[in-house]
Amino acid sequence: MKKILYYVNQFFGQIGGEDQAHIAPVYKKEAVGPAMGFAKMLEGEAEIIGTLICGDNFFNEHNEEALAFIKDINEQEKPDIVVAGPAFNAGRYGVACAGVAEFFALEAGIPVVTGMYEENPGLEACRGISYVVPTTDSAGGMRKALPTMAKIAVKLAKGEEPVAEEDGFFLRGIRETVFSDKIGSERAVEMLLKRLRGEEFETELPMPEFDNVEPAHAIADMSKAVIALVTTGGIVPHGNPDHIQSASAQKWGKYDVSKLEMLKGDYETIHGGYDPVYANEFPDRVAPLDQLVHLKKEGAIGDVYKYFYTTTGTGTAVGNSRKFGQEIGKELKEAGVDGVILTST
Protein backbone atom coordinates (compact mmCIF):
# COMPACT_ATOMS: atom_id res chain seq x y z
CA MET A 1 0.00 0.00 0.00
CA LYS A 2 1.28 3.48 -0.89
CA LYS A 3 2.12 5.92 1.89
CA ILE A 4 0.59 9.37 2.04
CA LEU A 5 1.98 12.22 4.12
CA TYR A 6 -0.56 14.97 4.83
CA TYR A 7 0.22 18.67 5.44
CA VAL A 8 -2.14 21.10 7.21
CA ASN A 9 -1.86 24.42 9.03
CA GLN A 10 -2.45 25.06 12.73
CA PHE A 11 -6.18 25.56 12.22
CA PHE A 12 -6.92 22.40 10.26
CA GLY A 13 -4.37 20.60 12.43
CA GLN A 14 -6.73 21.36 15.34
CA ILE A 15 -4.13 23.27 17.34
CA GLY A 16 -5.76 26.67 17.19
CA GLY A 17 -6.68 29.71 15.15
CA GLU A 18 -4.79 32.89 14.37
CA ASP A 19 -3.32 32.96 17.90
CA GLN A 20 -1.47 29.73 17.09
CA ALA A 21 -0.25 30.76 13.61
CA HIS A 22 3.27 31.14 15.01
CA ILE A 23 3.75 27.47 15.97
CA ALA A 24 6.72 25.53 14.65
CA PRO A 25 6.00 22.35 12.68
CA VAL A 26 5.01 19.20 14.51
CA TYR A 27 4.54 15.71 13.14
CA LYS A 28 1.84 13.29 14.25
CA LYS A 29 1.87 9.68 13.15
CA GLU A 30 -1.86 9.71 12.50
CA ALA A 31 -4.46 11.37 10.31
CA VAL A 32 -5.52 14.75 11.74
CA GLY A 33 -8.31 17.11 10.59
CA PRO A 34 -9.11 16.80 6.88
CA ALA A 35 -6.69 13.86 6.64
CA MET A 36 -9.21 11.77 8.65
CA GLY A 37 -11.93 12.17 6.02
CA PHE A 38 -9.36 11.80 3.26
CA ALA A 39 -8.14 8.47 4.66
CA LYS A 40 -11.60 6.96 4.10
CA MET A 41 -11.59 7.78 0.41
CA LEU A 42 -8.44 5.95 -0.59
CA GLU A 43 -10.08 2.72 -1.77
CA GLY A 44 -7.45 0.58 -0.10
CA GLU A 45 -4.77 1.84 -2.48
CA ALA A 46 -2.99 4.10 0.00
CA GLU A 47 -2.93 5.03 3.67
CA ILE A 48 -2.17 8.16 5.64
CA ILE A 49 1.05 7.58 7.55
CA GLY A 50 1.07 10.89 9.35
CA THR A 51 0.16 14.59 9.42
CA LEU A 52 2.57 17.50 9.35
CA ILE A 53 1.15 20.56 11.08
CA CYS A 54 2.76 23.99 10.85
CA GLY A 55 1.62 27.49 11.78
CA ASP A 56 1.00 29.66 8.72
CA ASN A 57 3.10 32.52 10.04
CA PHE A 58 5.90 30.18 11.04
CA PHE A 59 6.07 28.63 7.59
CA ASN A 60 6.27 32.02 5.91
CA GLU A 61 8.53 33.75 8.42
CA HIS A 62 10.89 30.86 9.21
CA ASN A 63 10.76 29.15 5.87
CA GLU A 64 14.15 27.45 6.04
CA GLU A 65 13.50 26.06 9.50
CA ALA A 66 10.08 24.75 8.48
CA LEU A 67 11.49 23.13 5.36
CA ALA A 68 14.37 21.57 7.30
CA PHE A 69 11.83 19.90 9.59
CA ILE A 70 9.77 18.72 6.63
CA LYS A 71 12.91 17.36 5.00
CA ASP A 72 13.68 15.30 8.11
CA ILE A 73 10.17 13.86 8.17
CA ASN A 74 10.52 13.00 4.50
CA GLU A 75 13.72 11.09 5.20
CA GLN A 76 12.17 9.24 8.13
CA GLU A 77 8.85 8.41 6.54
CA LYS A 78 9.65 8.17 2.82
CA PRO A 79 6.11 8.92 1.63
CA ASP A 80 4.98 8.00 -1.91
CA ILE A 81 2.48 10.86 -2.21
CA VAL A 82 2.06 14.15 -0.36
CA VAL A 83 -1.29 15.86 0.16
CA ALA A 84 -1.55 19.47 1.39
CA GLY A 85 -4.57 21.57 2.32
CA PRO A 86 -6.98 22.35 0.76
CA ALA A 87 -6.15 25.97 1.51
CA PHE A 88 -9.28 27.57 -0.06
CA ASN A 89 -8.60 31.31 -0.24
CA ALA A 90 -6.34 31.46 2.83
CA GLY A 91 -3.31 33.28 1.46
CA ARG A 92 -0.58 32.28 3.90
CA TYR A 93 -1.85 28.70 4.03
CA GLY A 94 -1.86 28.60 0.22
CA VAL A 95 1.68 29.92 0.02
CA ALA A 96 2.73 27.32 2.63
CA CYS A 97 1.08 24.53 0.59
CA ALA A 98 2.96 25.83 -2.45
CA GLY A 99 6.22 25.75 -0.44
CA VAL A 100 5.48 22.15 0.59
CA ALA A 101 4.75 21.31 -3.06
CA GLU A 102 7.99 22.92 -4.20
CA PHE A 103 10.05 20.86 -1.81
CA PHE A 104 8.37 17.50 -2.42
CA ALA A 105 7.69 17.82 -6.15
CA LEU A 106 10.90 19.53 -7.20
CA GLU A 107 13.51 18.40 -4.68
CA ALA A 108 12.25 15.05 -3.47
CA GLY A 109 10.47 14.03 -6.67
CA ILE A 110 7.29 13.00 -4.85
CA PRO A 111 3.90 13.88 -6.40
CA VAL A 112 1.83 16.45 -4.51
CA VAL A 113 -1.94 16.93 -4.44
CA THR A 114 -3.48 20.08 -2.99
CA GLY A 115 -6.55 22.29 -3.36
CA MET A 116 -7.03 26.05 -3.61
CA TYR A 117 -9.40 28.80 -4.62
CA GLU A 118 -8.51 30.27 -8.01
CA GLU A 119 -7.35 33.56 -6.51
CA ASN A 120 -5.17 32.05 -3.79
CA PRO A 121 -1.72 33.67 -4.08
CA GLY A 122 -0.12 30.24 -3.66
CA LEU A 123 -1.70 28.88 -6.82
CA GLU A 124 0.72 30.24 -9.41
CA ALA A 125 3.73 28.76 -7.64
CA CYS A 126 2.37 25.23 -7.42
CA ARG A 127 -0.07 24.61 -10.26
CA GLY A 128 2.72 23.71 -12.64
CA ILE A 129 4.43 21.27 -10.29
CA SER A 130 1.54 19.65 -8.41
CA TYR A 131 -2.10 18.66 -8.84
CA VAL A 132 -4.16 21.59 -7.54
CA VAL A 133 -7.90 21.03 -7.29
CA PRO A 134 -10.05 24.18 -7.59
CA THR A 135 -12.05 24.84 -4.42
CA THR A 136 -14.50 27.43 -3.15
CA ASP A 137 -13.04 30.42 -1.33
CA SER A 138 -13.97 29.13 2.14
CA ALA A 139 -13.74 25.88 4.09
CA GLY A 140 -17.41 25.25 3.34
CA GLY A 141 -16.18 23.59 0.16
CA MET A 142 -14.23 20.90 2.04
CA ARG A 143 -16.75 18.16 1.33
CA LYS A 144 -16.51 18.77 -2.38
CA ALA A 145 -12.74 19.26 -2.57
CA LEU A 146 -11.59 16.19 -0.61
CA PRO A 147 -13.11 13.46 -2.85
CA THR A 148 -11.58 15.10 -5.96
CA MET A 149 -8.19 15.33 -4.28
CA ALA A 150 -8.51 11.75 -3.03
CA LYS A 151 -9.38 10.45 -6.50
CA ILE A 152 -6.16 11.98 -7.84
CA ALA A 153 -4.18 10.44 -4.96
CA VAL A 154 -5.72 7.03 -5.71
CA LYS A 155 -4.73 7.33 -9.36
CA LEU A 156 -1.19 8.23 -8.36
CA ALA A 157 -1.11 5.31 -5.93
CA LYS A 158 -2.09 2.97 -8.75
CA GLY A 159 0.70 4.42 -10.87
CA GLU A 160 -1.75 6.10 -13.26
CA GLU A 161 -1.30 9.56 -14.70
CA PRO A 162 -4.04 12.01 -13.59
CA VAL A 163 -5.60 14.01 -16.44
CA ALA A 164 -6.81 17.59 -15.86
CA GLU A 165 -10.11 17.28 -17.76
CA GLU A 166 -11.07 13.97 -16.14
CA ASP A 167 -9.76 14.46 -12.67
CA GLY A 168 -10.62 18.12 -12.25
CA PHE A 169 -7.41 19.93 -11.33
CA PHE A 170 -6.08 23.25 -12.60
CA LEU A 171 -4.33 22.94 -15.94
CA ARG A 172 -0.63 22.63 -15.23
CA GLY A 173 0.60 24.49 -18.28
CA ILE A 174 2.67 21.50 -19.37
CA ARG A 175 2.78 20.65 -23.05
CA GLU A 176 3.29 17.02 -23.88
CA THR A 177 3.74 15.36 -27.21
CA VAL A 178 0.90 12.96 -27.91
CA PHE A 179 0.41 10.81 -30.97
CA SER A 180 -2.75 11.03 -32.97
CA ASP A 181 -3.77 8.75 -35.81
CA LYS A 182 -5.11 11.73 -37.73
CA ILE A 183 -3.10 14.65 -39.03
CA GLY A 184 -3.86 18.21 -37.91
CA SER A 185 -5.78 19.25 -41.02
CA GLU A 186 -8.16 16.29 -40.69
CA ARG A 187 -8.78 17.06 -37.05
CA ALA A 188 -9.34 20.74 -37.83
CA VAL A 189 -11.86 19.94 -40.59
CA GLU A 190 -13.67 17.49 -38.32
CA MET A 191 -13.90 20.16 -35.66
CA LEU A 192 -15.20 22.66 -38.19
CA LEU A 193 -17.84 20.23 -39.45
CA LYS A 194 -18.97 19.53 -35.91
CA ARG A 195 -19.27 23.22 -35.33
CA LEU A 196 -21.27 23.73 -38.51
CA ARG A 197 -23.62 20.94 -37.48
CA GLY A 198 -24.02 22.56 -34.11
CA GLU A 199 -22.45 19.57 -32.36
CA GLU A 200 -20.18 19.66 -29.34
CA PHE A 201 -16.50 19.89 -30.13
CA GLU A 202 -13.41 20.31 -28.08
CA THR A 203 -10.63 22.70 -29.00
CA GLU A 204 -7.06 21.41 -28.88
CA LEU A 205 -5.79 24.85 -27.94
CA PRO A 206 -7.95 26.58 -25.34
CA MET A 207 -7.58 30.37 -25.39
CA PRO A 208 -6.26 31.96 -22.21
CA GLU A 209 -8.87 33.42 -19.93
CA PHE A 210 -9.22 37.18 -19.98
CA ASP A 211 -8.29 39.18 -16.94
CA ASN A 212 -10.94 41.48 -15.62
CA VAL A 213 -9.81 44.67 -13.95
CA GLU A 214 -12.20 47.11 -12.36
CA PRO A 215 -11.87 50.35 -14.36
CA ALA A 216 -10.42 53.35 -12.57
CA HIS A 217 -12.59 56.45 -12.37
CA ALA A 218 -12.24 59.10 -15.03
CA ILE A 219 -9.89 61.96 -14.15
CA ALA A 220 -12.15 64.87 -13.27
CA ASP A 221 -9.71 67.76 -13.68
CA MET A 222 -7.06 66.93 -16.26
CA SER A 223 -5.47 70.38 -15.95
CA LYS A 224 -4.26 69.38 -12.47
CA ALA A 225 -3.55 65.72 -13.20
CA VAL A 226 -0.08 64.14 -13.08
CA ILE A 227 0.36 61.69 -15.94
CA ALA A 228 3.06 59.01 -15.97
CA LEU A 229 4.56 57.38 -19.04
CA VAL A 230 5.24 53.63 -19.00
CA THR A 231 6.24 51.33 -21.85
CA THR A 232 6.94 47.69 -22.61
CA GLY A 233 8.82 48.80 -25.74
CA GLY A 234 12.30 48.44 -24.26
CA ILE A 235 13.13 52.16 -24.45
CA VAL A 236 16.17 52.83 -22.23
CA PRO A 237 18.86 55.50 -21.83
CA HIS A 238 21.73 55.05 -24.28
CA GLY A 239 23.94 52.16 -23.18
CA ASN A 240 21.13 50.49 -21.20
CA PRO A 241 22.68 51.28 -17.77
CA ASP A 242 20.53 48.78 -15.85
CA HIS A 243 21.04 45.97 -18.35
CA ILE A 244 17.35 45.36 -18.94
CA GLN A 245 17.04 42.19 -21.03
CA SER A 246 16.11 42.56 -24.70
CA ALA A 247 13.73 39.58 -24.36
CA SER A 248 12.23 37.63 -21.43
CA ALA A 249 12.77 40.61 -19.14
CA GLN A 250 13.65 39.91 -15.55
CA LYS A 251 13.36 43.54 -14.44
CA TRP A 252 12.09 47.01 -15.20
CA GLY A 253 13.80 50.39 -14.98
CA LYS A 254 12.80 53.93 -14.11
CA TYR A 255 14.51 57.07 -15.31
CA ASP A 256 14.19 60.73 -14.41
CA VAL A 257 12.85 62.56 -17.44
CA SER A 258 11.80 65.74 -15.65
CA LYS A 259 14.45 67.81 -17.45
CA LEU A 260 13.81 66.39 -20.90
CA GLU A 261 11.62 67.76 -23.66
CA MET A 262 11.67 64.43 -25.47
CA LEU A 263 13.34 61.02 -25.27
CA LYS A 264 15.06 61.55 -28.61
CA GLY A 265 18.77 62.15 -28.21
CA ASP A 266 19.17 60.31 -24.89
CA TYR A 267 17.23 57.09 -25.36
CA GLU A 268 17.18 54.03 -27.60
CA THR A 269 15.43 50.66 -27.70
CA ILE A 270 16.89 47.33 -26.63
CA HIS A 271 13.68 45.42 -27.41
CA GLY A 272 14.53 42.25 -29.33
CA GLY A 273 11.06 41.68 -30.74
CA TYR A 274 10.64 44.41 -33.38
CA ASP A 275 12.68 46.29 -35.97
CA PRO A 276 14.46 48.94 -33.85
CA VAL A 277 15.26 51.40 -36.68
CA TYR A 278 12.24 53.69 -36.20
CA ALA A 279 12.42 53.71 -32.41
CA ASN A 280 16.15 54.40 -32.38
CA GLU A 281 15.64 57.26 -34.81
CA PHE A 282 12.93 58.76 -32.61
CA PRO A 283 12.15 56.86 -29.36
CA ASP A 284 9.14 59.10 -28.69
CA ARG A 285 7.40 57.10 -31.39
CA VAL A 286 7.24 54.33 -28.80
CA ALA A 287 7.00 56.41 -25.61
CA PRO A 288 5.64 59.86 -26.53
CA LEU A 289 7.30 62.02 -23.87
CA ASP A 290 7.48 64.95 -26.30
CA GLN A 291 3.70 64.99 -26.70
CA LEU A 292 3.09 64.86 -22.96
CA VAL A 293 5.52 67.74 -22.38
CA HIS A 294 3.68 69.64 -25.09
CA LEU A 295 0.31 69.00 -23.42
CA LYS A 296 1.74 70.15 -20.12
CA LYS A 297 2.93 73.42 -21.67
CA GLU A 298 -0.52 73.91 -23.16
CA GLY A 299 -2.04 73.36 -19.71
CA ALA A 300 -4.05 70.39 -20.95
CA ILE A 301 -2.48 68.22 -18.25
CA GLY A 302 -1.09 69.29 -14.88
CA ASP A 303 2.29 67.61 -15.03
CA VAL A 304 4.29 64.73 -16.45
CA TYR A 305 5.47 62.40 -13.69
CA LYS A 306 9.22 62.81 -13.26
CA TYR A 307 10.04 59.13 -13.76
CA PHE A 308 9.54 57.17 -16.94
CA TYR A 309 9.09 53.39 -16.41
CA THR A 310 10.21 50.82 -18.92
CA THR A 311 10.71 47.13 -19.58
CA THR A 312 10.75 44.72 -22.49
CA GLY A 313 7.51 42.96 -23.34
CA THR A 314 8.74 40.28 -25.70
CA GLY A 315 8.87 36.73 -24.37
CA THR A 316 8.44 38.05 -20.84
CA ALA A 317 6.71 35.55 -18.56
CA VAL A 318 3.18 36.41 -17.52
CA GLY A 319 4.19 35.97 -13.89
CA ASN A 320 7.00 38.51 -14.26
CA SER A 321 4.79 40.90 -16.21
CA ARG A 322 2.21 40.78 -13.46
CA LYS A 323 4.89 41.38 -10.84
CA PHE A 324 6.37 44.34 -12.76
CA GLY A 325 2.89 45.82 -13.19
CA GLN A 326 2.14 45.53 -9.50
CA GLU A 327 5.49 47.01 -8.47
CA ILE A 328 5.27 49.93 -10.91
CA GLY A 329 1.60 50.50 -10.11
CA LYS A 330 2.38 50.64 -6.40
CA GLU A 331 5.10 53.26 -6.90
CA LEU A 332 2.89 55.38 -9.13
CA LYS A 333 0.01 55.20 -6.70
CA GLU A 334 2.20 56.14 -3.76
CA ALA A 335 3.60 59.07 -5.76
CA GLY A 336 0.07 60.38 -6.27
CA VAL A 337 0.09 59.94 -10.05
CA ASP A 338 -3.43 60.42 -11.44
CA GLY A 339 -3.19 58.68 -14.78
CA VAL A 340 -0.84 56.46 -16.77
CA ILE A 341 -0.17 56.14 -20.47
CA LEU A 342 1.17 52.65 -21.12
CA THR A 343 2.44 52.03 -24.60
CA SER A 344 3.19 48.61 -25.93
CA THR A 345 4.94 47.48 -29.09
Partner: peptide, 16 residues
Amino acid sequence: GANRIVPTVAIPYPVG
Protein backbone atom coordinates in the same frame (compact mmCIF):
# COMPACT_ATOMS: atom_id res chain seq x y z
CA GLY B 1 -7.73 43.65 -18.68
CA ALA B 2 -6.80 47.13 -19.95
CA ASN B 3 -9.95 49.24 -19.73
CA ARG B 4 -9.02 52.26 -21.86
CA ILE B 5 -7.41 51.25 -25.14
CA VAL B 6 -6.17 53.52 -27.91
CA PRO B 7 -5.33 51.60 -31.08
CA THR B 8 -1.98 52.68 -32.46
CA VAL B 9 -0.14 52.59 -35.78
CA ALA B 10 2.25 49.64 -35.88
CA ILE B 11 4.32 47.46 -33.57
CA PRO B 12 7.72 49.16 -34.19
CA TYR B 13 6.20 52.67 -34.03
CA PRO B 14 2.93 52.66 -32.08
CA VAL B 15 2.84 56.45 -31.66
CA GLY B 16 4.23 57.54 -35.01
